[in-house]
Computed example of a mutant assay.
Amino acid sequence: MMQLLASGLQLWVRQQSQSIGSLDIQLQGTGLQLLRGRLAGVQLLARRVIYKDLHFELVELSSGPIQVHSGNLLKGKPLQLERAFEIQGQVSLTADGLTRSLSAPQWRALGDGLGEALLGIVPLVELRMCRDNLVFAARALGTPDLVELATTVVAARGSIEISSVVGNVSSRLPMDPSIHISDARIEAGMVQLIGTAQVSP
């Protein structure tokens, strides 16, 4: 039964994502609890994830208790979640992943908004890592040279604030109300975000 649920959860997670390189799911609880429609929790580790055109290098998540319709699994039907649940965890993004994310149509306006707020120039061309800084690069129309700005990232009021290393330029990202960022930093050559989120069925 637990293996059946693990397979069902893996399928559900893959269906929510555009692409996943590798995925490992560990279940917490007992078969008896599952028969009653309750799972104590889930731990997930995934690499090279694309979700809503956001490119994550690493995703590490754990959940609280989850209510599921166990009868569906026994009938060979897809997993169905009964109610929303909370997850905690960390995601890591490379500079290349951020560049590809902000180049996607649904996030391009955000990328150009950051270019305008931080550099005063659009379009945003790329992001790269330099030591412990995230460097934004934009090119004004009709000019060959890039304008660059080294920044740091921190958590601020449940969101992510990007600030220039030199000067006092900063921009706070708009955040889905179901997501709360508690820590943001640049480490091991990646932007690492820690927080919680509500997952709806």
Rank of each mutant, 00 (worst) to 15 (best):
T152W: 03
G120H: 05
G167C: 10
P144S: 12
S178G: 00
I179E: 04
A138M: 00
A84E: 10
R108D: 04
T99N: 07
L5G: 00
V153N: 06
R36H: 09
P123T: 08
P201C: 08
I87H: 02
G158W: 06
P123D: 03
L114G: 03
I121L: 09
S103H: 01
G21H: 05
G167E: 05
S164L: 04
I162E: 04
V135S: 07
L5M: 09
L61Q: 08
Q16H: 11
L27V: 00
S63H: 10
V49F: 10
G89Q: 07
G167T: 05
M1N: 06
S62E: 15
A84W: 00
L146C: 04
F136D: 08
R100D: 00
A95V: 07
Q18D: 13
G195W: 09
V165N: 04
G167H: 00
V125D: 15
F56R: 00
L35F: 11
I87K: 08
S171K: 06
L149S: 01
Q106M: 04
G120Y: 09
V122M: 12
E126L: 11
T143S: 14
L4D: 12
A155P: 02
Q15I: 12
S7T: 14
G97M: 01
Q10S: 15
A104T: 02
L118D: 04
L124C: 05
D112T: 08
Y51H: 11
S19A: 14
V42H: 01
V125N: 12
T99V: 06
G8T: 11
I160A: 08
T143M: 09
H55Y: 03
E148Y: 00
I181D: 01
L81T: 09
V191P: 03
L11C: 12
M175C: 09
S92Q: 07
A156I: 06
Q192R: 13
K77S: 12
V59E: 08
V199L: 13
V169N: 01
Q15D: 13
V125F: 03
L32Y: 13
L127C: 06
V125R: 15
A46E: 02
V122L: 04
L54W: 03
A138E: 02
P123A: 13
V59T: 09
T99H: 01
E86L: 12
V165G: 05
A184Y: 02
E57R: 07
Q67L: 15
Q80A: 14
A6E: 13
I179R: 09
G8V: 06
G8S: 12
I160W: 05
F56A: 06
R36G: 13
A197C: 05
L124A: 06
R128C: 04
A46D: 05
Q198H: 10
S70L: 07
L173S: 02
S163I: 00
Q18V: 10
E148D: 03
E57L: 09
F136C: 08
P105Y: 02
L141H: 11
L146Y: 11
Q10A: 15
V199W: 12
A188T: 03
N133K: 12
V147K: 15
V42Y: 00
Q28Y: 14
L193Y: 03
I66H: 04
S178E: 15
I87C: 02
V59W: 04
L110S: 07
S101T: 14
M2K: 00
G76A: 10
V125Q: 15
V153K: 10
T152A: 08
F85G: 05
L124Q: 11
Q88P: 08
R14C: 08
